[in-house]
């Protein structure tokens, strides 16, 4: 984004400045909490870090979701491609709902992941959480898809990606209720990917909508780098992306077994 669409990057990161500071703080607190939670024996210490871990982990999908929703909903952007709104302008109804959608999906996804990866009491609790969240998640995704259609003024007929999001969360609901951990996790993975992807399919070829004037919309054309930079980027991505995917896949393969609570 930084190298391929500098115009988009500049407007987004300047306009969403405070929101992204919050996102970064959430990511820092979350990462640190996982590391420190176990360092001192004591209920108070543990409770504090559990609280911070939860707060940080909730902040991340919520802020990301609001930011993603705002891309499609539109924020004040002038003819000079500069963000012209305030921090409060970022809290659009659709943006906030996108944030809620992503947060609920993350909760469900975390529950299905834990159910797949753990055993004993933690696994039972993850199962219970998944069963409780899967219906709300399904309803939220369904509402999100139709709201997305209406924001994009695309009519009632959903596109394939949006259909995939709805079907995936329905499949996850079936798998959760029948206790199939692997299928449940696959379902929530696909639901998450398709939900985010559906936003971008509605956006294309725009990348950031201007609520001031549709003539000021940022698109893949008016924010892209020069052809040479794009060519270099494509080659780099084609070479490096498979490497990243392979080592990510490898780490999951190494830690593929279930873990148990007793050490």
């Amino acid at each position: 984004m930084f190298a391929a669409f500098p115009g988009w990057y500049a407007t987004l990161f300047s306009g969403f400045y405070l929101a992204l500071v919050l996102l970064l703080a959430g990511l820092i607190v979350r990462g640190i909490a996982i590391e420190y939670r176990d360092r001192v024996d004591g209920a108070g210490w543990r409770r504090t870090w559990t609280m911070l871990l939860t707060a940080g982990s909730l902040t991340v999908p919520l802020v990301l979701g609001i930011a993603l929703g705002d891309l499609l909903h539109g924020v004040p952007i002038g003819g000079d491609q500069e963000y012209a709104g305030t921090f409060a302008d970022l809290f659009t109804g659709y943006g906030v709902f996108t944030g809620i959608t992503l947060t609920v999906l993350c909760l469900l996804h975390g529950a299905t992941f834990l159910a797949l990866k753990t055993s004993g009491e933690i696994r039972d609790r993850a199962h219970r959480l998944a069963r409780r969240t899967v219906l709300p998640a399904g309803l939220v995704v369904l509402a999100f898809v139709f709201w997305t259609r209406s924001v994009a003024a695309g009519g009632i007929l959903v596109n394939l990606v949006e259909l995939a999001a709805v079907l995936a969360v329905a499949a996850a609901a079936w798998a959760v209720s029948s206790g199939r951990d692997g299928w449940a996790f696959s379902g929530t993975t696909l639901a998450m990917a398709a939900t985010v992807a559906s936003l971008f399919t509605e956006l294309y070829p725009r990348v950031m909508v201007s609520s001031t004037n549709s003539a000021f919309d940022l698109t893949v054309h008016n924010t892209a780098s020069g052809p040479y930079a794009l060519k270099v980027m494509t080659v780099v991505a084609l070479v490096l992306l498979p490497v990243v995917l392979v080592y990510q896949g490898w780490t999951y393969h190494v830690f593929r077994k279930r873990i148990s609570a007793d050490r």
Partner: peptide, 13 residues
Amino acid sequence: VSSSVSTTEVAIS
């Protein structure tokens, strides 16, 4: 310098 980020916002961050 980004024209849409105010001094207050930078200070807050």
